[in-house]
Design a protein around this nucleic acid. Structure first.
Lengths: 233, 233
DNA sequence: ACAAAAGTGTTGAGAGTACACCCATGC
DNA sequence: GCATGGGTGTACTCTCAACACTTTTGT
């Protein structure tokens, strides 16, 4: 806002502003997304990304966290939340002009388990890569969130946000494979992840049916960014 | 927007929504940004990123292009424009709640020259890395735009948007150096830029004081993306 | 003992980086 | 003829990608 040095801020008709939060988790061996049911409108059986109006005294990220809490019961500032994009086509909601600021959140299924009984009666998890029909432009928002997640996971350490506090290297590799939808080489993966110096080994092991696996933890002080390969030198 | 299956869309008080467009060009051998003067308010001599209210029937990107045209006179759909981030802290504008969707634009000084006499009386160009004091949270918006530009220039071919249609390899290299604020090796730069197969040589040369330089053009059909170096395999 | 997942090294190819000199033109 | 920017090649290093077997545990 710049040109007018003074103006009547009430003179313009204002759009509604909402925040929609795309919530991802790893469940049942795949990447899943939380959706809420729209009972009759605009079409029977359509689902939607959870969202709500931005209150006049709350910031956008606070509104997104409020939405996250309402739907999952999780009220933890450590949950990863990032602004995605703002969608504002004039006809994206046929009722009225609604501009929505989309966020995406990553949450471990462990954290979700702790808050199982939330009030989200009509919310359910769906495979992120195979969602049901979505209302409005929400399919576009979900695609965009998946694209950003895939991209982000390649050059930062966000994937850890989807795992429990301690995890095995195989669990970490599976998380990457589910997000990237791609198989990775075990030896190369382990060598590189250990070389990155972002993990610390714990003294514990995960005992299952077979040989126990060492448990690792993400180093809080780790700076996990990769120097990007440039298009030009 | 999801939970309420029906609601009165008029029941909430609504924030104002603006679009602010950070306009970059290469001028006088440096990266510059267009700012507008805020005459008396909130503080004497402060400058601001050009912006304006989003009309009820226009999309966000159309609003950003409208702003671009009002300030520079340039009304060309080829001008590079990208949504940056949405800033919505409740107190970012002390008068009322204003949520602003920031965009950034890249425009060549050649295009600007064609539209020199626009109505932007109080607009002026400033060094992007050394701007004057800025109003509201506009310093934060500008920093964010510079960060994104630096980042984007490394893995896509956006830098061409700042050059004329034809350019010498030295001009291209200087553009990269001004944006990245870093010196590059001439031989490596030329080898890699030619290997990327995004340029076509023209038959023309730029004659200056000394040996004439070949002029190149960006290939319209070029797909200029780099496969990103991953944090993990 | 056997099934199942954990864990571990080497090699060849390609890309990145550092580095110095001759060339064509205007004055 | 000289000053100025244009233009060119090589050698070393590092990172990436492909690939198969041994170890440890539970049953």
């Amino acid at each position: 806002m710049g040109t007018e040095s003074s103006y009547d801020v009430t003179q313009y008709e204002r759009p509604s502003v909402t925040v929609d939060t795309v919530i991802f988790t790893l469940r049942q061996g795949e990447l899943q997304v939380l959706l809420v049911e729209r009972k009759n409108w605009p079409h029977e059986g359509e689902w939607a990304i959870p969202g709500g109006f931005v209150q006049m005294d709350e910031s956008l990220s606070v509104a997104a966290r409020r939405e996250l809490k309402e739907e999952t019961g999780v009220d933890d500032p450590d949950v990863y939340l990032e602004q995605l994009y703002t969608f504002g086509a004039p006809d994206r909601d046929p009722r009225t002009r609604v501009i929505t600021v989309a966020y995406f959140a990553l949450i471990s299924s462990e954290r979700l388990r702790l808050h199982a009984g939330s009030d989200a009666a009509s919310a359910a998890w769906f495979p992120a890569y195979h969602p049901p029909p979505l209302a409005f432009d929400h399919a576009e928002i979900l695609s965009y969130a998946l694209e950003r997640l895939r991209y982000k996971v390649e050059y930062t350490a966000v994937a850890f946000q989807l795992l429990s506090e301690t995890f095995t290297l195989t669990e970490l590799q599976k998380a990457y494979e589910h997000i990237l939808d791609e198989q990775l080489d075990k030896r190369n993966f382990r060598r590189k992840v250990l070389a990155a110096n972002v993990l610390e080994a714990t003294t514990f092991v995960r005992s299952g049916d077979h040989r126990p696996a060492k448990l690792y933890r993400f180093r809080e002080d780790a700076v996990a960014e990769v120097k990007t390969r440039r298009l030009f030198p």
